[in-house]
């Protein structure tokens, strides 16, 4: 197992290299650069921009620019932001990464807390009114795009009912301790549910399907023939087997959450990595784009690795040596 993990981590290096090459190339393929937007000011002569371009290295050939970036990143230097002058990329990310982490974990917690019990209950009461209700909700949840669900949530719960704040991470300054925590939590509710919606719907369906599939297995018949109670058959024999594919999917969920967060944060004007990412893309702020991309790529790779490790933990048939 240890050897396997080390081998997998070593494989990350060429993968990350390829990912950065592709993303850098794509980002550069988009027209314009960080100074394009400012060109409109007629009081500044175009030569000034040219000098700044030259200084930022934007006139170098693309492979030179990539190489310069790679060389500094390999020394853990992610450079300066081009849109927020005077601020390092690390600073910008540090200020926002925890917000995104809170949002993602909150969404994940909601997803698991809702989808697994409902999936189990749906499966045990197959074709009941509850099951049909859950199925309908699941298809609606899967079919509703993130941004639309977000807008709807803002309209109903923030604007109309006024239960939860529509944007940001905190309202008042000066809160501390538990009050601050509660306030932050209230701000997480709408974006969290929005972000978790599609996954909740999907996991509900996975859970239901898996339970039903495992229920038909020979070993469940054996368990019942042993005289075990329904609870024991469901929660021990069925659930443990049904969770195997779910746990595997959870590892892949990191990627879904982070990419979903980009849209959701935008809708709720939530100051996280997603908002920063979209701003960097529109402003062609390459150092920030690349750094956030690297974070996303590493998270997804680690998620995949964790999925494979969990898989071996829950299923004794899987061994990696």
């Amino acid at each position: 197992m240890q050897k396997y993990i080390i081998r997998r981590i070593l494989q990350f290096i060429p993968m990350l290299f390829l990912i950065t090459v592709v993303v850098f190339g794509l980002a550069k393929a988009a027209p314009g650069d960080v100074l394009t937007g400012e060109m409109l000011d007629p009081n500044i002569p175009p030569e000034v921009y040219e000098i700044r371009r030259e200084a930022l290295g934007l006139n170098d050939p693309i492979y030179v620019q990539y190489w310069t970036w790679l060389a500094s990143v390999s020394k853990a230097d992610f450079g300066m932001s081009m849109q927020y002058s005077g601020r390092t990329v690390i600073e910008l990310i540090q200020a926002r990464i925890m917000n995104t982490l809170y949002l993602s974990l909150f969404a994940l917690a909601i997803t698991l807390a809702i989808s697994i019990p409902i999936g189990i209950y749906s499966a045990t009461k197959k074709y009941s009114l509850f099951d049909y209700g859950a199925t309908t909700f699941a298809f609606l949840g899967l079919a509703t795009p993130n941004f639309f669900a977000g807008l709807l949530a803002i309209y109903v719960f923030a604007f109309w009912l006024g239960w939860f704040p529509a944007q940001g991470t905190t309202t008042a300054i000066g809160l501390s301790g538990f009050e601050l925590f509660l306030d932050k939590l209230r701000h997480l509710v709408l974006p969290g549910f929005t972000l978790g919606l599609a996954s909740t719907a999907a996991y509900m369906r996975y859970m239901r399907t898996e339970i039903l599939e495992v229920k038909g297995s020979d070993f469940i018949r054996t368990a019942r023939a042993k005289g075990l109670s329904n609870q024991s058959v469901l929660y021990k024999h069925t659930l443990r087997n049904s969770l195997i594919p779910i746990i595997t999917l959870l590892g892949l969920e990191f990627g879904t959450l982070l990419s979903g967060a980009i849209i959701t944060e935008r809708v709720f004007n939530y100051p996280g990595l997603g908002t920063l990412f979209i701003n960097s893309i529109t402003n062609r702020d390459y150092p920030v784009i690349m750094a956030i991309n690297l974070i996303l790529a590493i998270t997804i790779l680690i998620g995949n690795l964790l999925a494979d490790i969990f898989y071996a933990v829950v299923d004794p048939r899987i061994r990696y040596d």
Binding site: F219, R221, T222, A225, G227, N241
Partner: peptide
């Protein structure tokens, strides 16, 4: 009836490959 199953009547099945729970 659950006290009869597995206690007073034991049962074995056709498929030994799938009749045991793989994760225990």
């Amino acid at each position: 009836m659950r006290k009869v199953r597995g206690n007073e009547i034991g049962m074995i099945f056709q498929e030994p490959m799938t009749s045991l729970n793989p994760v225990f």
